[in-house]
Simulated scan of single mutants.
Amino acid sequence: MVDYEQLLSDRVKIVKPSGIRRFFDAAAAMPDAISLGVGEPDFETPWQIRRAGIQSLEKGQTFYTSNWGLAELRSQIAGLARRKYQLCYDADKEILVTVGGSEAIDNAIRALVNPGDEVLIPEPSFVCYTPLTQMAGGTPVPLPTLAKDQFKLTPDRLRAAITPRTKLLILPYPNNPTGAIMTRDELEAVAAVLRDTNIIVISDEIYCSLTYGAAPHVCFAELDGMRERTIVVDGFSKSYAMTGWRLGWAMGPKELMRHICKIHQFGIMSAPTTAQFAGIEAIRTGEDDIERMRTQYDIRRRYLLGELRSMGLTCFEPQGAFYAFPSIASTGLSSEAFCERLLHEQQVAVVPGSAFGKSGDGHVRISYSYSMNHLREACFRMRKFLQSL
C-alpha cells in the first residue's frame, strides 16, 4: 500500500485549497444559483482581438515563440509602459511574457525567495501570494489593513513589520478583494520606508486600468528610485476581458528578469502563441474597449454600493478593480457562516472575507463583474436573507 501522505512535499501539504473556488463549485451545482464569487469579466473578448487570434491559427502560426515572448508583443508592452507610466523598459531584456499574471508572480517569488526569507503581504489580498511564498520555502508575513484606513498599507505598519529576513513586499493595488487603491502620496510614503533597504517590491498591476476616481492610477515603479527595486506584474485578463487566454507579463531590472526568465524557460517554455498574437492586437486597438467596460463596471459599482448600504451593511467605497467588500459584522455571523447560509437559503454565492486572510473575517467579497440583471436579483435575494436573520 502506497503511503501518499509520506510522499508529498511538506511545502505542498501546508498549502490550503482556494477559499474562492469552494463556493464557486458549490454554486455551479445549483441550477438556480447566482454566483458573484469569481472575478471574471462577463464581457466577451472584443472581436478584433479574437479575430487576431483566429487569423494567427489560419496562418499556421502555431510554433513556439522565444522564451521571452513574441518580439512584437514585448515591443507593444514596452510602448504601453511608456504611455501609461513614462517608464522605459528594454523589450529584449526586461519584459517577460507569461501564462497570466499568476505565473509572473510565482516566477518572481521563486527567483528571489530563499527558505526562511520573509515576504510581506498586505491583507486582505488575493489568495495566491501566501501559498506561492510557502511553496518557495519563504515565510509569509501578513500586514493587516483596516476599513478605517480604507484598506491601504500604512507606512507605520510596513516599518514595524520589516526584519533582517524581509526579502519582498507584495503591493497589490488596486486591491482584490477590497477594491482599495493607493494614491501617489500614499505610495511615496511606502517608498520612503523602503528607500534605504534591500527589499524588492512585486507590484501587482492586474487591475490598473479599472479605477474610478478622478486621479489616475500610479505604478509604484514610477516613483523616484523605485524602478530598480520593483517587478511590475500585469496582464490581459481583467482589462481586456481575456481571462481564458492566459496571458500576462512581468517587467523589471534586467539583473532580475534574466533569472525570472530561467524559471519560465524550464517550467513553461513560452506563453500560448495564439494568445500572444491576440495580445498584440489588444494593446494596439483595445483602449476604447477598456473604457467601455470600465464605464459599465462603474455603473454596477455605484448600484451595488447603494444597495448594500440600504440593506444596512457598512461598506467601504471601492475605487478600483470590480469588488465590493462589505462588513457583515452586524449580522453576528462569521464570514464563512454568512456565505454558507446565503448560498443554501437564497442560492447566492459570495466569498468569505476570511479566504483573503484573517483580517478579512467579518466581511464578504462580492464581484460586480456580472450583469445588472444578475446584480439586481442577487441583491433582492440578499435583502430577503438579511431580513430573515
Rank of each mutant, 00 (worst) to 15 (best):
V218Q: 11
L171N: 04
A180V: 07
V190H: 10
E205P: 10
Y212I: 06
V190L: 15
I199G: 05
V218S: 12
R184I: 09
E205F: 12
R195Q: 13
M182K: 09
D204I: 03
C208K: 01
V190G: 05
T197R: 02
T163H: 14
A191P: 08
L158P: 00
K167F: 01
E188W: 12
D185V: 14
R184W: 04
G213F: 09
L187T: 13
L171G: 05
P164I: 06
V193I: 04
L194H: 11
I181W: 02
V193S: 03
C208A: 14
V193D: 02
Y212V: 00
I206C: 05
I206S: 03
V201R: 05
P174C: 06
V201E: 08
I199K: 05
P216A: 07
G179Y: 04
P164K: 09
D196N: 14
R184S: 09
L158M: 07
P172F: 06
S209K: 10
R184Q: 14
C208I: 07
Y173V: 04
V201H: 10
A161T: 02
A160H: 12
C208E: 05
A215R: 14
E188C: 13
V201G: 11
L187G: 11
A180S: 10
D196K: 10
T197I: 07
C208P: 03
E188G: 07
R165Y: 08
T183I: 01
K167I: 02
A214Y: 00
R184A: 13
M182F: 14
L169Y: 01
R184F: 01
D196G: 00
T197A: 06
P216S: 09
A214I: 05
Y173Q: 02
T211A: 07
E188K: 15
E188I: 14
A189F: 09
T183V: 00
N175Q: 06
G179P: 04
A221D: 10
N176V: 02
R159P: 03
I199A: 08
I181R: 09
A161Q: 09
Y173S: 04
R157P: 10
V190Q: 11
L210N: 08
I170E: 03
T178M: 02
A161E: 11
A161I: 06
F220W: 15
P172L: 04
P172E: 01
M182G: 11
A221V: 13
R157S: 15
Y207W: 08
P164M: 08
I162G: 08
L210T: 02
A214T: 02
N176G: 00
N175V: 01
R157Q: 12
Y212C: 07
R157D: 14
R159G: 00
I202W: 04
Y173W: 01
V190M: 12
D196E: 13
F220G: 14
V218R: 12
V201M: 12
I199N: 07
D204K: 07
I199S: 09
N176M: 02
D196A: 07
P177H: 06
G213V: 07
V193G: 08
L210H: 09
H217F: 04
N198T: 10
